[in-house]
Write a protein that binds this DNA or RNA. Structure first.
Lengths: 110, 110
DNA sequence: ATTATTTATCGTAATATTGCAATATTATAT
DNA sequence: ATATAATATTGCAATATTACGATAAATAAT
């Protein structure tokens, strides 16, 4: 097959999976970290920051955008990409919650 | 191609990507959430909790294990799978850090 | 108008992922 | 020893992902 079976899972599970999948490639992690570092919208040099050809980078950016991790706007000649904070707050909340749950009922595990 | 280019990225970037990739499927998110809920090692009924055939679930469990998100030990007839807390603490730290950075220098973004 | 510059899209090859039926493996129960 | 139960592995088909060259599109500079 190869096609993921989304309809049997909850919306939240699918959302987390979509976000996680978008971060499931080191180039995309690197893009996010770069955007965080420069923290600016006029960052028309992402391609030079990555060891990948321009079309490949463009494709990774598209995936990050589709998954909602970044926002992009045309800014004259180049493009303004920046992090969409909402998603990262969601991730922080999600994993924070998991950590809390683990903290509470630790012990009856290997 | 289809093969990810890990050697050009930092170890940390590759690690985060590996972990995120493992969570990049709703079935695997569901497995983690189930393990959290039951919080027990004798959980020999993960298959019944998921809308997928047994070999498929087994494969997802294997991927979670390879990525270090769960630990599994043979426990008599069935298998004891449970969450590996370290990884989730790492994730919490990572996204907490990102959230903090965003908080500090917010504003000069779209 | 022509020429850079920047980003996106198309086409395509290589590889990976998803899913399951069939089968193997391993331990428990009879 | 044989049957039952739980999990893993194999093999395979369908689909997705990754990567990049070639090319397009759109703005900026000359």
């Amino acid at each position: 097959m190869g096609a993921t079976n989304t309809e049997h899972f909850t919306d939240k599970q699918n959302l987390i999976a979509t976000i996680a999948k978008a971060l499931g490639h080191p180039a995309r992690v690197a893009i996010i970290e770069y955007l965080l570092k420069v923290n600016s919208c006029i960052c028309g040099d992402i391609v030079n920051e990555l060891p990948l050809a321009q079309p490949t980078v463009s494709q990774h950016l598209k995936e990050l955008k589709n998954a909602g991790l970044i926002k992009g706007e045309i800014e004259g000649n180049s493009i303004c990409y920046c992090i969409d904070e909402k998603v990262f707050k969601k991730l922080q909340a999600y994993f924070g919650n998991i950590a809390t749950k683990m903290e509470i009922k630790k012990s009856n595990c290997c």
